[in-house]
C-alpha cells in the first residue's frame, strides 16, 4: 500500500470533521474520494499533506509515518496536491509557478554565488522539463503571463501541471473538474490517465459522478467524517448506504 489512513480523527473547536476514517490507496491506482458537502474530504487531504495536524490515528506513506511532519517535509517525500480553492502564486509567471515545483540546488542562496554556471544549466534543464508539462495542459503560449491573468479553467490546469512538475509519486487533486467545461474536463481526464501510465498514483476528490465513475479504479465514500463504503465504481453504484448518504435516509 502506498498510502494508508488508519483511524484518523480531527475536530475543529468541537466540530468533528474526521471521525475514525480508514482507507488505503495502492500503488499506481486512481482512487476517488467522494461524499456529500462537509463530509471531511478536504480535511483528509489537509491531514495527509500536514496543513492540519491529526488528533488521533495514523497516516502512512510508503510505510513511513507522516504524523507530525511539516508540509514541506511531506511534500519532499513525494506527495503533491492541488487545492479546492486554487492556490497559485498570482504575482509570478506561469513558468515560474511550475519551476517552483522543482527541488533544486539553485534554491540554496550560496550556490547561486559559488556555482553560477551550474545553477544556470540546472535552470535551463528545469525550464525544458516544465515546458513539457505546460504543453501537456496546453498552456505553453501563456508561459510568461502572470498566473493571476489566466482564466479560471486555465488556472486549474496550471495548478494540476504544477503538481505534476513535482514528479511526486502520489498526486492529490481536490475537485479537479469543478466548474470546468466539458472540453477541459476531457483534457483533465486524459492527463490523469497519462499520470497513471507514468506509474503515478492519484487520489482525487470529485462530485462529478460521470467523471469519477469513468476513471476510478477504486472509490472511497465518506460521510460524517468516516468512510462508509470502499469499492469499484460498480460496487459503489449498487451500494444502498451510499445512495442514502447522498439522497438522505428514508424514514
Amino acid at each position: 500500500m502506498l498510502l494508508e489512513i488508519k483511524k484518523l480523527e480531527k475536530s475543529f473547536d468541537g466540530i468533528k470533521a474526521v471521525t475514525g476514517c480508514d482507507f488505503a490507496v495502492k500503488e499506481n491506482e486512481i482512487a476517488a474520494l467522494i461524499g456529500p458537502n462537509g463530509a471531511g474530504k478536504t480535511t483528509v487531504f489537509n491531514l495527509i499533506t500536514g496543513l492540519v495536524k491529526p488528533d488521533n490515528g495514523e497516516i502512512l506513506f510508503k510505510g513511513e509515518l507522516l504524523n507530525g511532519l511539516e508540509p514541506h517535509e511531506i511534500s519532499s517525500l513525494g506527495i503533491a496536491r492541488t487545492f479546492q480553492l486554487i492556490r497559485l502564486f498570482p504575482e509570478l509567471s506561469v513558468m515560474e509557478n511550475l519551476l517552483l515545483a522543482k527541488q533544486k540546488q539553485g534554491e540554496r542562496l550560496i550556490k547561486n554565488f559559488t556555482k553560477p554556471n551550474f545553477i544556470k544549466k540546472e535552470e535551463l534543464s528545469n525550464i525544458d522539463r516544465c515546458l513539457e508539462f505546460l504543453k501537456l495542459v496546453g498552456l505553453e503560449e501563456k508561459r510568461n503571463e502572470f498566473a493571476k491573468n489566466l482564466s479560471y479553467g486555465q488556472q486549474k490546469l496550471l495548478e494540476i501541471a504544477r503538481a505534476m512538475s513535482t514528479e511526486a509519486d502520489l498526486i492529490l487533486l481536490d475537485e479537479p473538474v469543478a466548474g470546468v467545461n466539458p472540453v477541459m474536463r476531457d483534457k483533465i481526464k486524459r492527463i490523469i490517465f497519462d499520470l497513471k501510465k507514468q506509474g503515478k498514483t492519484i487520489l482525487f476528490i470529485e462530485h462529478d459522478m460521470k467523471f469519477l465513475m469513468d476513471i476510478s479504479d477504486k472509490i472511497i465514500v465518506m460521510d460524517h467524517g468516516e468512510e462508509i463504503a470502499i469499492g469499484t465504481p460498480q460496487e459503489i453504484q449498487n451500494n444502498k448506504q451510499v445512495a442514502e448518504a447522498y439522497l438522505g435516509r428514508k424514514k
Binding site: 496543513l51 511539516e70 514541506h72 511534500s75 519532499s76 502564486f89 498570482p90 509570478l92 527541488q103 504544477r162
Partner: peptide, 14 residues
Amino acid sequence: KAVKDDELAASSLG
C-alpha cells in the same frame, strides 16, 4: 517571492 505570494502553497511544494 513564492513565500510572499502564498506561503502555504510554497510549503506544499517542499
